[in-house]
Simulated assay, not measured.
Amino acid sequence: MSGDVAVLGAGMHPWGKWGRSFVEYGRVAARNALADAGIDWPDVQSVVGADTVRGGYPGYVAGATFAQALGWQGARVTSVYAACASGAQAVNTARAQILAGMADVVLVVGADAAPKGFFAPAGGERPNDPDWLRFRVLGATNPTYFALYARRRMAVHGDTPEDFALVKVKNAAAGALNRNARYRAPVSAEQVAASAVVADPLRLLDICATSDGGAALVLSSMEFARRHGAADPVRIRAVSTVTPTYPKAVLDLPDIATDSAVAVEPATASFRASIARAAYEEAGIGPSDLSLAEVYDLSTALELEWYEDIGLCPAGGGAALVREGATALGGRIPVNPSGGLASFGEAVPAQAIAQVCELTWQLRGTAGDRQVPGARAGITANQGLFGHGSAVVAVR
């Protein structure tokens, strides 16, 4: 298809709490992606950096920051910010440059050095931002937000804390097989149940951590890929970065009350579902064509929401999928074979890029012990602050 771009290289810096600059994580990830692609740094014509608001001025000009760290060589630079969707916005920017004929080879890089504890809003007062209002007016940190979703699922769909725990068990088992993951130990349902309550009904092991890490991709035109000897590369076929639809200006905030008497079915499809739908439409595929998915499991309960939003099952069917093992490695449609945020934690500008790295390795058949047999198509999905969300479809 004319809208395809090739993924020539994928690379990461392992996630953890390393206490170093995000620039180092990005540089290592970029070098790994270049080596994976068999491309020399001077061959890169453009660098797109996913910004981090926690890295000072260098974080706001990430494209130039990473280009400098790799060594000035004249490449075009672009920097983008879209909270959790920053990495996918960077991929989309790179793809647009390639399809417009502005560059044949583009390096996409995202990295972060996250603070300990909960993320807080950055950038001053934003009274028109529902997420800022959630923090400032309600005092609802992210785990509280996640817990409200979980309570809604329990009230509307009958999900249980035991269902949520199965998501952590599944993702920890996959993360134990991933050398880039921060947490590489299997977790039992009993361990989830015994961990501290953070925001009822979610416990510590139901919620993702904040992490340091980096991820990078080398993208190219299909013509360049063929000249480079990549006859059948992984291809990015669609990137969705749609916004919510008016008049639903408040982004899927659940009812503040969590009693089952007032928790009702949402009136319209969620913002997250619209993100995935736009990606499917552009790619010309549907959920039944997927081999795997990488979704933003900020909490175990939110992963179940994603099953429904990307069309793997009807509303309320997520818990049944995880109970039957359909979304585990070896299941019908593995979700988060990388281990997900449960195993990595959030390194915000890197994570959407890391999701595409996982699709790349899976579609190449090089994911090792976590390989999804015969993988041919995959989707990534995430949601970030103030209407920033994304989905990427990759095929082989």
Rank of each mutant, 00 (worst) to 15 (best):
V5L: 02
W18A: 04
S21F: 10
E24V: 00
Y25L: 05
D43C: 12
V48F: 14
A64L: 03
F66E: 01
Q68H: 15
W72P: 11
V77H: 11
S79G: 02
V106H: 04
V109D: 03
A122E: 07
R126H: 07
W132R: 02
R134T: 15
G139C: 09
N142T: 07
P143D: 04
Y145C: 12
A150V: 06
R151F: 04
T160G: 05
P161W: 06
E162W: 10
V169D: 10
G175S: 00
N178G: 05
S188P: 00
V192P: 09
A193R: 14
L205P: 12
G213T: 04
G214L: 02
G229S: 03
A231M: 14
V234T: 14
I236Y: 15
I236D: 11
P247Q: 10
D252A: 10
D255F: 09
T258H: 06
D259R: 09
E265Q: 15
A269L: 15
A283C: 01
P287Y: 10
L290M: 12
S291A: 12
W306R: 11
V322K: 02
V322Y: 11
V335M: 04
A342Y: 10
P349F: 01
Q355T: 07
L363S: 10
Q371F: 06
R376M: 03
A377S: 09
N382P: 05
V393W: 14
